[in-house]
Write a protein that binds this DNA or RNA. Structure first.
Lengths: 141, 141
DNA sequence: AAAAATCCTACTAAAATGGTAGGATAAAAC
DNA sequence: GTTTTATCCTACCATTTTAGTAGGATTTTT
């Protein structure tokens, strides 16, 4: 899990809090989330080309999520920055291990991959926001 | 999951098949598993310093597992080559994120980390060997 | 003593990571 | 219609990690 995925998640959380009529700019996200303004360029570009975020460019434009936060999973954000989930390289179709299907280890790595993938798909941006509310409540006590 | 962990798992599987009186040398593992003899040096060194493998002095010498295959998990092998499991860097104690406990994302990464850790701990070398027997049986059909 | 095996340290090419830099483009405000 | 402010786009780069290679020292067996 590299910084792009992590920052991507936090960016999506930030955008999910946008209220109708309100504008959220790259600058806002950069400041709130303490992510370099320029690096955020690449984060947002990734989210856009994955179809998770959209914008109208121009002076007052800002960004917006294309789907409700409850319909964007962490897996969606992960795949915005990675070709696919592969906990070991022999799972990505590029490289083909000589041992292939004879390899019990490979079967195990595939199962691990499934475990992780299922979990990433099960958590949405909305879940994270709810968790955030819960955390804020606990801190206020 | 880097090559050291993957090769480490396959090396442990190889050693687990050792019968009493039989010797398994680095050379054997290198040939059977198609791992460079010299690189295997480092793999075995890691397994040894983690206490999973020891050198036996007998007729010649060779290596042996220090525990039954059913009591060596993939997590044990993982930690032989990595300081600890951390799917994101802010989970390793070295770096401390400014957001710390206020961050819902971090809580999520921690849960993901637990999911992976539990799974790695749940699978033993013995499980992999049993799976291998199953695969061999299916291929023979 | 020779041979065969383990043990140990250092080096390195290539790729990935986590950014920075500089400017082009688009549209709203004046 | 020009200035301002925001997005968009491409290239570059330092550092770290990865996946080994290399060379030899030491120990054990024959």
């Amino acid at each position: 899990m590299n910084t792009k995925v992590r920052y991507g998640v936090r960016t999506a959380m930030e955008l999910a809090l946008k209220k109708p009529g309100e504008d959220i700019y790259q600058k806002d996200i950069s400041i709130n989330q303490e992510i370099s303004y320029k690096y955020l360029d690449q984060i947002i570009a990734g989210l856009k080309s994955a179809g998770l975020v959209t914008t109208v460019s121009g002076k007052k434009s800002g960004y917006i999520l294309t789907r409700e936060p409850g319909r964007i999973s962490v897996y969606d954000i992960y795949t915005a920055f990675n070709p696919g989930l592969a906990v070991v390289e022999c799972l990505s179709d590029e490289e083909v291990c000589k041992k292939e299907e004879r390899c019990a280890a490979k079967h195990f790595w595939e199962e691990l991959n499934d475990v992780v993938e299922r979990y990433l798909k099960s958590i949405t941006i909305n879940d994270l926001l709810e968790k955030q509310v819960e955390i804020n409540k606990q801190l206020a006590e």
